[in-house]
Design a protein around this nucleic acid. Structure first.
Length: 500
RNA sequence: GCCCCCAUCGUCUAGCGGCCUAGGACGUGGCCCUCUCAAGGCCAAAACGGGGAUUCGAAUUCCCCUGGGGGCACCA
């Protein structure tokens, strides 16, 4: 164990432009884990400076998604703190003041180039096979002159003035030094013509003002990392520890999941969106465990983690910088593992909504009885009503074909039903203790296989070819109903036999 | 086109110069258990992208190539 880390201040800073997905969830998780592990502070900051892409419901969905995973924040839009407000849309003037400062010290400049000129410039650059970048047209306009043009009503943006010679080296905690030639760093716009700051300025200002010590974010920010470094240096601020996480690739490993592919996933019972996963029957514990292990590991054999384990065992040093393909079958595996690890009453309260959703009135008492026999045989919570719905239906209507058993005709199956009825009817109850021994004697007497006899009963009683263990199920259903259902199946089989 | 990042079984990964005839997990195949389905147990197939260099010794360090990924917006 290395020395304990000092309490960190970290943040998750999503933009409310869409739904929270796996990648965002993992970024939030790692930030949260580092904060909890070090006794630090986890901040939720909403980056909503782009009103054009703003989606009303997104902020709430992001918060719901995080809460569902078990992640909570110490400071955020709904949790005031000293460094607030935590919505960038409420901090517009702050960014403008800092942009002004950069202008005054010569690290930024006003740019009056029209979108048309910029577009033409880019087209020409592409024709010449150059990479698209600002050509410096307004770089050297004296500030006084620029301010006069602004006063006269000209539209403008503010660009950061990047050096054109030399190179910049920034250290990423995972990847080591990243060096780029300064000439490849554009004079990025940091304030738009509508007066709103862009990410590059706003995030750096906020990270400083909010005293962020470690920035854990996606690798899509690596290309602009030198820019961020320059902005921070221009202000003379201390730089946070940078940690750039790898991206999630689609299951094939070929590239990121497209919007279309994401939407199509739901057809297979999967989704990259957290709120969908909840509805699909996944446990938040399973999802958390799963995404935690995509890009982080503990040792060479431990894979089962709950949130407290993760907080205890998480460390930056075990992060993996390479991209990871999403593997939904592994999520299924973790879901099964976590479902089976649930205490009975917890399990019951988790499956309850899924019965309700199917219109089944499942009472807690019965659910508690069936919990032990279905808990280890469902892969997702959504499967509970599929496998155990018959407990809550007045009648079951088996397909007569399902009643047939291997090697037997309808008449023989009817006889199984009849003799089973005779065997069970006199008993005080039907259960693994009372009923099963008698039925096994019947199996012997009829010179059949247990699977054949029990198969008829299973379909008769549950209406399904696949069900929880027979005698346990019959005990819960109750003798009277069980006998009714057997009798019904017997009649179906006899009718069939008579017709064929 | 330019810049940057990454590189161990199909997938997620362990490995930070000798413990490696490369370990675990998912998935796959087989067997056991068994009233169906699961769960569980056992076994098996399956990887260090290629080429140089350093070293007594390289999956582990360096270089090149190749491959994959990300970025190049008045989005974040």
């Amino acid at each position: 164990m290395s020395e304990p880390l000092k309490p960190v201040r970290v943040r998750f800073a999503p933009s409310p432009t869409g739904r929270l997905h796996l990648g965002g969830g993992r970024t939030a998780l790692y930030n949260y884990l580092l904060a909890k592990k070090t006794g630090g502070t986890f901040i939720l900051r909403i980056e909503d400076t782009d009103q054009k892409r703003y989606i009303e419901s997104a902020e709430q969905e992001i918060m719901d998604g995080l809460h569902w995973l078990g992640i909570d924040w110490d400071e955020g839009p709904d949790k005031p703190g000293e460094a607030g407000p935590y919505r960038q849309s409420q901090r517009k003037q702050i960014y403008l003041d800092y942009a002004e400062k950069l202008i005054n010290q010569g690290d930024a400049f006003y740019c009056f180039c029209s979108p048309e000129r910029l577009r033409e410039m880019k087209e020409n650059q592409q024709k010449r096979r150059e990479f698209p970048h600002y050509d410096g047209h307004c770089r050297d306009i004296p500030v006084a002159e620029a301010r006069a043009r602004i006063a006269a009503g000209e539209s403008y943006v503010i660009r950061f003035k990047t050096p054109k010679e030399g190179s910049t080296t920034v250290r990423d905690h995972l990847r080591g030094e990243i060096t780029v030639e300064n000439r490849t760093i554009d004079d990025y716009i940091i304030v738009k013509s509508d007066g709103w700051a862009l990410y590059h300025l706003a995030a750096m200002v906020d990270d400083h003002l909010m005293n962020i010590s470690h920035v854990i974010r996606g690798s899509e920010w690596i290309p602009t990392l030198p820019l961020h470094h320059m902005i921070i240096k221009a202000f003379g601020w201390e730089e946070p520890v940078w940690i750039h996480l790898s991206v999630f690739l689609k299951p094939s490993g070929k590239g990121k999941m497209s919007k279309r592919e994401s939407a199509d996933l739901i057809k297979d019972g999967y989704s990259i969106f957290l709120t969908d996963l909840k509805d699909l029957g996944y446990l938040p514990e399973a999802v958390t465990n799963w995404i935690a292990l995509m890009g982080w590991s503990f040792d060479d054999h431990t894979e089962f983690f709950n949130m407290p384990d993760l907080i205890r065992d998480f460390s930056l040093e075990k992060l993996n910088p390479s991209p990871a393909a999403i593997n939904f079958t592994k999520l299924d595996h973790f879901n099964g593992l976590h479902i089976r690890s649930l205490a009975t009453d917890d399990f019951v309260s988790r499956i309850e909504p899924f019965f309700a959703q199917k219109g089944l009135n499942a009472d807690k008492e019965t659910l508690t009885q069936i919990a032990p026999i279905i808990q280890e045989r469902i892969g997702g919570l959504d499967e509970a009503p599929e496998i155990a719905g018959f407990f809550f239906r007045e009648t079951v209507v088996p397909e007569v074909e399902d009643l047939f058993q291997k090697g037997l005709d309808a008449k023989q199956c009817a006889e199984i039903a009849a003799r089973s009825y005779e065997t069970l009817a006199p008993l005080s109850e039907i259960s693994p203790v009372v009923g099963e021994p008698e039925m096994r004697l019947l199996v012997e007497a009829m010179q059949l296989k247990a699977a054949q006899v029990f198969g008829v009963l299973r379909v008769a009683v549950t209406g399904q070819r696949v069900s929880p263990p027979l005698f346990e199920s019959m005990e819960i259903i109750g003798k009277d109903i069980v006998l009714d259902r057997i009798k019904n199946a017997q009649k179906m089989l006899e009718a069939y036999a008579a017709d064929h």
